[in-house]
Amino acid sequence: MELTVYLAGQIHDNWRSELKNKAKQMELPIHFVGPMENHDRSDNIGQEIKGEQPSAIFKDEAASEINNLRTQVLLNKSDVVIALFGENYKQWNSAMDAGTAIALQKPLILIRPESLHHPLKEIANKAQVVVETEEQALKALSYIFETN
């Protein structure tokens, strides 16, 4: 058995690469998917597909359409969603992806520092697992594969 895991969260650092490397070291049979990690491509994809837009607002709207298509398809195909919330970046996309996972009844693992307990309490209440580190999230996933 292999799981497909959607990695929701900010795209401004390499947390996904680190998590994937740790999963590989643990020999977990997991296929990871997620949002477009190339920020410029994500911001410009609407214009690349639909053509030049008349303003920055329309450019953002066009990009959002294509990014939301990608997210919906990949979330629907996922077995589990991991949503990472950290201290350094605004987390609107993480919250949207976590909410979508909840609405789709996808199992959700929420990673957040203790300092974000209060602002994330409603999402945490709907998640199957709430942890503080990527390692803890991977250990929770590894438990799925244990037979004894």
Results as ranks from 00 to 15, higher is better:
A8M: 10
I30C: 07
L75C: 09
L3G: 11
P54R: 01
K50E: 07
E132D: 10
A137V: 10
W15Y: 08
E18D: 12
Y143D: 11
G9D: 06
L3T: 06
R41D: 02
E2C: 02
L69S: 07
I82S: 00
D97P: 01
Y6K: 10
Y143P: 01
F58P: 00
I11A: 07
E37Y: 06
N38W: 03
R16K: 12
A140Y: 07
H39W: 15
S115G: 02
H118Y: 08
E114R: 15
F85E: 02
E132M: 10
E65M: 05
G86T: 14
F58C: 08
T71W: 02
E122R: 10
W15H: 11
G9M: 02
Q128Y: 10
I111A: 14
V80K: 01
I30M: 09
I109K: 00
P29F: 10
S42N: 02
L120K: 05
E37D: 14
P107S: 03
P29M: 05
H117E: 12
K126V: 05
I102C: 03
N76K: 12
Q136K: 13
G34Y: 07
K20G: 01
S142P: 05
N21Y: 13
Y6M: 03
I11E: 05
L141T: 01
N44M: 09
N38Q: 04
A103H: 15
S55M: 09
E2H: 13
I30A: 07
M36V: 06
I57W: 11
Q91C: 14
E122Q: 15
L69W: 06
A103L: 04
D97Q: 13
L28A: 04
E134H: 13
M96N: 06
N21V: 08
R41T: 10
T133N: 03
A127W: 11
G99F: 15
V5M: 13
E61R: 10
L84S: 06
A98P: 04
V131Q: 09
H117R: 11
I144F: 10
Q72E: 15
A124D: 08
S115M: 06
I66S: 02
H117N: 12
L84R: 13
L138Q: 04
L138G: 02
S78K: 06
R16I: 01
G51E: 12
V130P: 04
I82D: 00
L141Q: 01
P107M: 01
E52W: 00
I123W: 00
H31S: 12
A8G: 09
K50Q: 08
A95H: 09
M96G: 01
A95I: 04
V5S: 14
D40C: 04
K106V: 05
D43Q: 14
V33D: 05
L138S: 02
M96S: 09
K126W: 04
Q91S: 13
I49T: 14
N68M: 09
G99S: 05
P54I: 01
V130T: 11
N148L: 10
T100V: 11
S94T: 03
G86I: 07
I102T: 09
A137E: 07
F85A: 08
N67C: 09
Q10N: 09
D79F: 15
L19D: 01
Q136I: 09
R70M: 11
K90G: 09
W15P: 03
E134T: 13
R70D: 07
I82A: 03
E65Q: 06
S78V: 04
Q91I: 11
I11Y: 00
D60Q: 12
Q128D: 11
I102Q: 03
E65G: 05
I45P: 01
N93A: 15
